[in-house]
Write a protein that binds this DNA or RNA. Structure first.
Lengths: 248, 248
DNA sequence: CGTGACCTTGAAAGCCTTCAACTCGGGTGG
DNA sequence: CCACCCGAGTTGAAGGCTTTCAAGGTCACG
């Protein structure tokens, strides 16, 4: 059930201790980070691993929320739909990120894999039981939840008060920062999602996203090596746009 | 220091036990709800009460986050600013709501009173110390944080994918629900905030908000008793708009 | 009764969307 | 092996929803 790579990494790090998952304890935005080895061992007992192919569904809005999970490999989009099919992407999540936390019994949004994705899943009911013993879990989940809240509030400002160029640049800089945070190079910025996904994240249309890429490229703010690889050429201009320094 | 009304309500509920605050333990979105009497007593030791006049500032984005707090009376707006002054209101909070939770050492947004407001404040450092003894606190804060996250995601859909009418109707219905949740009548819907505040919440301009009110009124979806009191006349139409049933 | 803040309304302008055509690259089947 | 097809992305032109600019109205307050 547990992936060989997981076992390998784990034995390096924790000796023979059964681990929650290899990626988790090394990364920032996971349940496991900040837990003690023996607490990790407790967690490990209830963990299962899962693989989801590119474009596969992790879960859907309204489904019973049976697991919370860490992404240990790949990339995921989270989204909500309106009745007539309009879609708003709430965020993208990558290796090391944590998803699936809900207030009620059901997921509040849908999640789909952008690329082949590996998950480390914790059954909610069993995690619930562990809470009594592992106080740090609630503390940790609270930290993660607040981080997510702050990021969502930033997204709110983007959607409510930024124009198309500012939105796209903000998004690119965010992706670049996320790459650095998980130990990858900051450049080029990799876009594992489609233009449609970007549009639904930024509250724009595919065409506007495309045109805005072109405009930024022509002005020398960014360079597009290909559709999915971006470099920031004029960082000062980019950061001014993202910060909303009034057309400056 | 503790308000007389607080004391009166408290003695009714908890006998002579010193309470964290009267409103808190009766309301949903507070730290205190779901705590045991003796835990409340612990909390009470670190509590202070504060009054903020209408339009007064509770705290500003970037300030050291010294307190988390419950609103026990009044209404508050939370907002963030862009460098050039554009403003996005993140949400409105009312009696019974909880604010000020942050990941880092500083507030992530600013908070201003819409009306005269009373607060029940918990110094963060001392709350921190209590965490070791009162496990339920983290659990409770987690619940509150997740609720807030879900509400913010809903706001994201509103800003990213709804048109002006849908935004305004969604907002009105939300306010109505909030009134019911805190035990007030669902109608009329009371608007303690200005048109400018509504605009900055909905990602629109004052003029568009005003025109949209007029349009909804003319179509018979709502009635405006005066600037600050709204009734929903055609609930089916209103809910269809809010749900985004494609121009239905 | 003047003043100012807030709200509403009108007209013109602008940014983004919609509709449409075209390019490019990969997969497929003849 | 290559024509064909399809999805994804780009670009152009027209249209629409919201913004901007401007003016007028109402009410509280000095």
């Amino acid at each position: 059930m547990v992936h060989p790579e997981t076992l390998r990494l784990v034995s390096q790090r924790l000796g023979s201790l059964p681990p929650p998952c290899a990626a988790c304890d090394a990364r920032e935005r996971t349940v496991c980070a900040a837990l003690e080895p023996q607490e990790l061992a407790e967690l490990a007992r209830i963990l299962t691993e899962a693989e989801v192919p590119a474009h596969g569904t992790l879960f859907r809005e309204g489904e019973p929320a049976e697991h919370v999970m860490n992404i240990t490999r790949g990339a995921v989009k989270l989204y909500r739909l309106l009745a007539d099919g309009r879609r708003q992407i709430l965020g993208f999540r990558f290796a090391g990120d944590f998803i699936g936390l809900t207030a009620g019994a059901e997921y509040a949004y849908s999640a789909e894999a952008l690329t082949a994705t590996r998950l480390c899943r914790f059954p909610r009911r069993r995690l619930e039981a562990l809470r009594e013993r592992l106080r740090r879990i609630d503390r940790r989940l609270l930290e993660l939840s607040i981080d997510e809240l702050v990021a969502t509030q930033e997204h709110l400002v983007l959607l409510g008060r930024k124009d198309a160029e500012e939105r796209l640049v903000s998004f690119l800089l965010l992706l670049g920062q996320a790459q650095v945070r998980r130990g990858e190079p900051g450049e080029p910025i990799v876009l594992p999602m489609s233009r449609g996904d970007i549009a639904d994240y930024l509250g724009l249309t595919i065409e506007t996203v495309s045109r805005t890429f072109t405009a930024l490229r022509r002005r020398g703010v960014i360079a597009l090596d290909d559709t999915t690889h971006v470099r920031v050429l004029d960082r000062a201009a980019a950061e001014a746009l993202a910060a909303g320094t009034g057309s400056g």
